[in-house]
Design a protein around this nucleic acid. Sequence first.
DNA 1: GTCTATAGTCAGATAGAC
DNA 2: GTCTATCTGACTATAGAC
Lengths: 201, 201
Amino acid sequence: MPDDRNSPKQVSSGGRERILEQAEELFRSRGYNTVTMREIADAVGIRQASLYYHFPSKEQLFVSVNERMFERHRLGIEQVIGKNEENLRSQLHAIARWFLSQPPIHFLSMVHTDMPLLDAENTARLTACSSNCIFEPICQIFTQAQQRGEIRQVRPQLLAGFFLSVIESLPLASTFVDDVPKEAIVNEMILVLWEGLRIES
Amino acid sequence: MPDDRNSPKQVSSGGRERILEQAEELFRSRGYNTVTMREIADAVGIRQASLYYHFPSKEQLFVSVNERMFERHRLGIEQVIGKNEENLRSQLHAIARWFLSQPPIHFLSMVHTDMPLLDAENTARLTACSSNCIFEPICQIFTQAQQRGEIRQVRPQLLAGFFLSVIESLPLASTFVDDVPKEAIVNEMILVLWEGLRIES
DNA sequence: GTCTATAGTCAGATAGAC
DNA sequence: GTCTATCTGACTATAGAC
């Protein structure tokens, strides 16, 4: 029976789930290689060696953390898409709002810096997971907008990649542009993207 | 007098310059933390300890490598901008072609993963250097296009960040979209961007 | 300028008590 | 499930010969 003394937020359940939460925050903000098992243990409030009861290796912990995170994004994205059936613009705004409500993924760093340190098998798992959970759902809304005749025929995969790269570069962009909220930046860019794609009637 | 036996490309001069070349390639492809001084020394063909005759620390080597790289990009960008005075679209295509002719920078990974491991002073140096060499020149061409009345009034900093984020995500994007050359992808996205920005006459 | 040798750290992981 | 203690290996950097 977990005691839950001064639990930081919500339930936060005990054991494994608490480790996943703290590890996610650390991996997210500093990357796989830089974060040590010791730091994760400290954040959880246990000893470094105790982590190995729940996860067989740092690598497996990292994979579990990120599969969990990608799945959460899949749920979030599908939910906000479901609420905005009508048109591409409002769907894009809703997805952008979803991403802004979550900590950034830093997907490019993950692919470039973290994944090459993992087994080929784990790299493949995470790549497939990110594609299913994030890339594919966004591709779909562009495809559907094209089927409705709302936008021009540009490869949906490119548009999804384009859109995601803007989202991902937001943390950096907002340090270059002072005093403009991220929401405003992303709205401005969605407008440009949409104007560039729409079919003038 | 350097001997230059089997020099891989061009002059490649001896000593310090050879180290910078090899270190750049390694840091670029695997990041600051992952690359070891031993690997760099192996690539150059000397012993690990010998690197410390030319550079006082791994961190200083990393800073020197990247300042040199950013300066090279500044020259390249200013040169291709100079050749295409007329309009935004051809300037963007020229800059994109320049970036595609060079190995990717992975700027987001650098900011997110590498820089936090450096001294505050070195982080500031590299940040300023990247801004001067890459960000500012691209901002300028958007500003000038607006002054010519070629495109709408959208913050040039956002447009530069947007454009660069597309360039940076190209290595990843082209793994998701098979059999389409990077040139074609970037041209398609520049067209969308330009259509979204131009002032219909 | 480059070498050998090594100091000094710190990481991930395991063994076994409780 | 969590602990203490420890193994093993890898890395940056220094000392000093040549």
